[in-house]
Write a protein that binds this DNA or RNA. Sequence first.
DNA 1: ATACATAATTAGACTCGTCTAATAAAATAA
DNA 2: TTATTTTATTAGACGAGTCTAATTATGTAT
Lengths: 217, 217
Amino acid sequence: MRSLTEENYLKAIYRLSLNKKLKISPTAIADEMGVSAASVIDMIKKLSEKKLISYDKVKGAKLLERGQKEAVAIIRNHRLWEVFLLEKLNYSWDEIHDIAEQLEHVKHPELADRLDVFLGHPEYDPHGDPIPKSNGEIPTTVKTLLSEIEIGKSCRVVAVKDTSSVFLQYLEQLSVNIGTKIKVLDIVPFDNSMLLQIGKEIKTTVSKRFAESLLVD
Amino acid sequence: MRSLTEENYLKAIYRLSLNKKLKISPTAIADEMGVSAASVIDMIKKLSEKKLISYDKVKGAKLLERGQKEAVAIIRNHRLWEVFLLEKLNYSWDEIHDIAEQLEHVKHPELADRLDVFLGHPEYDPHGDPIPKSNGEIPTTVKTLLSEIEIGKSCRVVAVKDTSSVFLQYLEQLSVNIGTKIKVLDIVPFDNSMLLQIGKEIKTTVSKRFAESLLVD
DNA sequence: ATACATAATTAGACTCGTCTAATAAAATAA
DNA sequence: TTATTTTATTAGACGAGTCTAATTATGTAT
């Protein structure tokens, strides 16, 4: 059985490991978790003893197979719950993270899988991050920015990159949601503004900045 | 902010308070929680200081207004999540309790209310316990045992009282689920067995014991 | 290569929730 | 009413996870 705290350390180390360049030092983990370096050292000892991570002063920390598996499972839970909160409970983008942070630690065999089925096997969470599969495999992120779509092509919104409320309100105004179909009708060469057909009804022009904040497939 | 442990004590005291006769003594709480009496004493001090409960050696412990409110909120969460797990994730009766035990502590304003809306304002959880309203009001349990239904009357299954797997499998075999309509066609005076019309298809006789294990409205 | 700065580690303390063992108080039985 | 049993309470310890304040290593710049 893994404690809440241990799980959070694994998650933090996982997150840091995504940035291949960076060495996962005690201080890096301390910053990520908002605790003191001393606390991190203690936990590193504990997780190493449990063979969840390896640690060496020069190379830093690294998830071992079991630790990696557990971290990914938690991320999977987190992202599935985010989808649930947004799609089923109509929470907004900016609220779901904190709640999912709690839900991700609820443990029961099958829970993630059942949630996955219930949600219709979503591939991305509402922030555009891929949802790991049951076996721990993480679909290589092929999410595309709307700004990369060519004239004449259509796509569907899978996530937002910017979650500021101004942006979200703008989306709402344009009736853009996850799943909304968008066709790129034209691109203005001057500033790369895009003329879009949003769903069936709306036709509008958006800035390059806007197009770089929407993820589509 | 309430700790997990504090919440569990409040819940335990609430549960004990339902049995009006019983004095809520440290030992009673210890038994309910599966901890030592010494631990309970400590927590009683803590909860009293926080004005969540009152305590007096002779009268025992009692929830104060705030404690009561918090306990009921947790129960509400628990029961709503149970409905979710059963109805949406297709978990079985005997699995939902343990998961709900974890989910009930997830905190966010509106979470319970949104879940309530999503589930269509259920009145009972799958064990037949009433789900407290948002304002803390608990619908007075008017659930009836199937055994109390008169000949010729119809009712709908709202919950089960017995959650043993033999019983649940029996129900499955009879196609009895929450919501299933049952009409009492006859009662055998000898042993109070009941002849039932279950849904449209099935007509069968069940024992008194069976009829006392099903809750209907 | 020495000096200064940063990072890692250790030591010791604190809080929370738990325990066992000892003691005090109350309830019950003889 | 005294003896016995049960319950409440206190004292002291422990593990988990945290902290601050040393201390020791490591790096970096001059």
